[in-house]
């Protein structure tokens, strides 16, 4: 029954990449227009939205706030985008954030190791988590959603074990700078996120890794027959996601100067997946867009800010998020497109 499967597999991505490809393609247009619309709407709700002030040499304002708050989500989301590119998903990112934050906080509190070593240890924890997920998915052939569910559940327990169930607080100029410091008026966390994302982009797009990830996500069998180590690529994707979450965990812990194993990164996996989808990638894998994923994060953050500005309780964000996801998914769904196509064709003659 190959034919049945095939029609399912090949998405109707007509027009995804226009003749010129790259930046001018339609793919790029939807999310960016959405972001502009949200920002304009925010401006209409509250004219002060566009104000950017410089206080004590630091930038302040709603726009800066969106980027500031979005930094950690963006980090997680780009890792998620790569995993989704391989036709996978990583539900454990929130737990990894908690684990890396816990490792960092406990090391700072209990040892006098240099910040550099502490950060390496936190990153190492993220790497191990990613490796675990990757091995389950690539070598034990467990479905990604299930494989990463294990760490999602157990990870918070591990983080609590590390912190002994308490919120571990710490002091240290270095980490306070990461969490809430500024460089040339720009928050450090934004700079870190930007560097990591740009680096990831370079690794993916300036080497052939990005192509390999997309090939494996599009057709793992064919990729293997073309000489690509499909399993290795999958493991790598989860490791990258683990590392990205670890960086986010470091930033989040540095921000509150403590590790909260229960709440650090809670529900972040959902926001990250949302951002990838809003950025236009299909959950069926085969393509990933790092820049558009960041745009997706900004859209979600700006929506939240807009709701705050309009005076509604922040919890309304949830309903808006749900609506956005539904619209994006329905627009993307091949079946919905077919139905729309049929609808228009039927109406055409009149």
């Amino acid at each position: 029954m190959t034919t049945l499967q095939d029609t399912k597999k090949s998405p109707q991505n007509g027009g995804r990449k226009g003749p010129a490809g790259g930046l001018l393609s339609r793919q790029w247009l939807g999310p960016v227009i959405a972001l502009v619309l949200v920002i304009v709407a925010n401006g209409l709700i509250s004219p002060s939205f566009f104000n950017i002030k410089v206080v004590d040499g630091h930038l302040y304002g709603s726009l800066v706030d969106i980027i500031h708050r979005g930094a950690s989500t963006a980090l997680v989301a780009v890792g998620m985008a790569i995993v989704i590119g391989t036709r996978g998903i990583d539900l454990s990112v929130g737990s990894v954030i908690a684990i890396s934050g816990a490792v960092m906080a406990v090391l700072i509190r209990d040892t006098s190791l240099s910040p550099f070593i502490v950060i390496l240890a936190a990153l190492g924890a993220g790497l191990l988590c990613g490796l675990w997920n990757g091995i389950l998915v690539a070598y034990l052939d467990i479905q990604p959603i299930i494989a990463t569910l294990i760490l999602m559940v157990a990870g918070r327990g591990i983080a609590q074990m590390i912190t002994d169930g308490q919120i571990v607080t710490f002091h240290g100029a270095f980490f306070e700078a990461i969490g809430s410091g500024y460089l040339l008026g720009i928050p450090w966390r934004v700079i870190i996120a930007a560097i990591v994302i740009a680096g990831l982009w370079a690794i993916m797009r300036k080497t052939a890794l990005g192509l390999f990830v997309e090939a494996v996500g599009g057709n793992a069998r064919a990729s293997r027959l073309a000489g690509i180590d499909a399993r290795g690529i999958k493991v790598l994707a989860y490791v990258i996601s683990g590392l990205c979450s670890a960086v986010a965990g470091i930033i989040i812990a540095a921000d509150i100067r403590g590790a909260d194993a229960n709440n650090a990164g809670l529900w972040l996996e959902l926001d990250a997946i949302l951002a990838v989808v809003v950025g236009g990638a299909s959950l069926m894998g085969g393509r990933f867009y790092l820049a558009l994923t960041v745009v997706g994060v900004l859209i979600i953050q700006a929506l939240g800010t807009g709701i705050l500005l309009s005076g509604l309780p922040s919890q309304y964000t949830l309903i808006v998020k749900a609506a956005v996801v539904m619209v994006v998914l329905l627009v993307q769904a091949p079946r919905a497109r077919q139905m729309m196509g049929r609808f228009w064709r039927r109406r055409d003659p009149q």
């Binding site: 599009g218 069998r221 085969g286």
Partner: peptide, 18 residues
């Protein structure tokens, strides 16, 4: 279909793959 093409990738990328 099963073993050859990567349907989402473009002609150029499919050619470059091996």
């Amino acid at each position: 279909k099963q073993d050859g093409i990567v349907p989402e990738l473009g002609v150029r990328e499919n050619i470059a793959l091996a």
